[in-house]
Amino acid sequence: MNWTMQGRCWKFGDNLSLDDDILEFAKVFVGGVRVSDPNYLKKHVFTNLIPDFPERAKPGDVVVAGKRFGQGNPHIYGLLGMAGLGLGLIAESVPHFTYRMIVAAGLPSLPFFNDIGAYVEDGDELRVDFRTGEVENLSRGVRRESDPLPDALRDIIETGGFLPALKKRLTDVKTIE
């Protein structure tokens, strides 16, 4: 797990919706069945806002969003797609279901970076340490800090998200018994 990322800043505004802006919900269905494979979902991330986003985004790039990133019906698929692209996330705020889903998707994040929008612009080069909460804007020579995710949740992300962490938990329990 790489907790330090360096890459392009993709800056978005407030209130990005899970089911439309981040990943159009209809795209989740293949033959009527929901797909949760990040390698499939990553092809549809943000395409309603930037049609060629999946081709242009590179691992290590960081999405910087405004307030209430991931509002709407709690569907995890867009966040799985972001993890599939190898992106990091900084948001000014996220609703609580999205906070959970960030962890479940295994997405390195700083989800409550209150004023980050004032210090970065789209296209800036960022270096982010998701363990410490430190963000360095290499294009502007600015350094800012926010609270990182709690250790317990970073452990889940480190393990790969919800299902791998749950499998590990079940194995650990069996080992103790």
Partner: peptide, 20 residues
């Protein structure tokens, strides 16, 4: 409510929660 993470509750009886 835990929605998509509910398998954890069925399997173990609990799941992580931040005290609100």
């Amino acid at each position: 409510a835990l929605v998509f993470e509910f398998p954890a509750v069925l399997a173990t009886g609990s799941h992580w929660l931040k005290v609100p």
